[in-house]
Write a protein that binds this DNA or RNA. Sequence first.
RNA 1: GCCCCCAUCGUCUAGUGGCCUAGGACACCACCCUUUCAAGGUGGCGGCACGGGUUCGAAUCCCGUUGGGGGUGCCA
Length: 459
Amino acid sequence: MSTGPRYRFAPSPTGMFHVGGARTALHNWALARQSGGTFVLRIEDTDEVRNRPEWTAGIIDALAWLGISADDPHFEGPLFQSEYAAAHLEAANRLFESGHAYYCDMTPDEIQDRAKAEGTTGYGGWSRDRGLGPAPGSVLRFKVPEGTTVVHDLVRGDVEFDHAVIEDFVLVRGNGTPVFILANVVDDMSMGITNVVRAEEHLPNTPKQQMLWQALGHEPPVWAHVPVLVNEQRKKLSKRRDKVALEQYRDEGFLADAMVNYLMTLGWSPGEQEIQPWSVMEQSFRLDDVNLSPAFFDLKKLAAFNGEYIRRLSVDELVDACDPWLPAEWDRAVFREMAPHIQPRLNTLADAPGVVDFLFLDEPDIDDDSWSKTMTTEYAQPLLADAIGAFETCAWDAATIKATLEDVMGRYDLKLGKAQAPVRVAVTGRTVGPPLFEALEVMGRDESLRRMRNALDRL
RNA sequence: GCCCCCAUCGUCUAGUGGCCUAGGACACCACCCUUUCAAGGUGGCGGCACGGGUUCGAAUCCCGUUGGGGGUGCCA
């Protein structure tokens, strides 16, 4: 095990794995690896009603997809918070014994009523001096001392919080279970975490957690709060209304490398060239350089990155990558022949089948608009007939097929752009698609001619 | 309401007092290339929120205003 700094990523398994979480994980991963430290994965599975085992598996799978997994010696875990419940309660008890915390038997309703009566909001520390002991239904609250707490944040600098505005927060619920703020700190302490890098939404928790570290007799970790990711309305990305599931992007044919690269450009810049391999970004990432403003998760730019990464794939890599999106019965050898031609036309791997499906269907799926646009011209029928005649005997390779059609179209005073259209629609069903002559070559003379004759019959 | 954070093209960013008539990328537009559509090439549009300071000099420092965000749970 490494002796360097210990970072951690501590998601809760309450839903699909969030792209924001993915970015935070990447930050921690880069920092841990560049410093020869450790990345601890801790699953915070203490919310019994919202937890689901499949979400935990989803987190681990998604991280592995990004390249963060136990295969790497810098990775430690997964550790499960639920297994440390005894330590959380033991810490809570120590806090009570040392006078840093006290019990309170007021219900939420009673607290609200009293606050209303006194014209204040929140909890007023009313049970501080009542000397209550543990009892069923009572909560343990932290006794926030007077003064201020300064959080030294590597991204934001020093942030000062006045204790007067921090109420005595709950550490242990009435049902005896610890809350996040306590469990999180106790685990970080016992796991020897030295650096906490997380999203900005946790910044308001930080003074409370820092007080807990100190009350428990430890030096707090180095903090860093990176800005949140937002949607087009500039609201924090939410699982409910935004498309945030990393799994979903994977299933739609986004490449892990593209996703990783894009995520890293949110709130940080890898330099003049923003398309960079992970090996480079991992070493150059610095918290000092992280932006302070929320960043919009832009699907269009992600897609552009993805297209760029797809174009950089070798043909073999592309064919392999597309495989999960291709119907099992499609001939991979045929697909492979077309792969180089569709490569620059793909934004996602999931686009692949739709671009070449005509090669594998028994009959082309004729698009009505395409048909009416190209087949209603006066030259469509004679040109198709002539092309069929010429194609019956010419050599069957893309260059010759092209030359043959060019020869035919000369009789109609057409440019290639116009002349290829009826053939394209007859064979592929659409006006747009991969290069036609290459597609014809791959499809073969017999099937190409059959489709052209069928189209001719319809005219 | 209260606390905290933030503010460069539509978006992501470079920029840490003079290299800035503010650079790049995505998006958008035009042209070129072209076998349709892409890809590629070239060019264009477009920004330092506002007002005060400090300074010989400010996108960069300070203050205020405005605007945005996060948090205010016996969720995490």
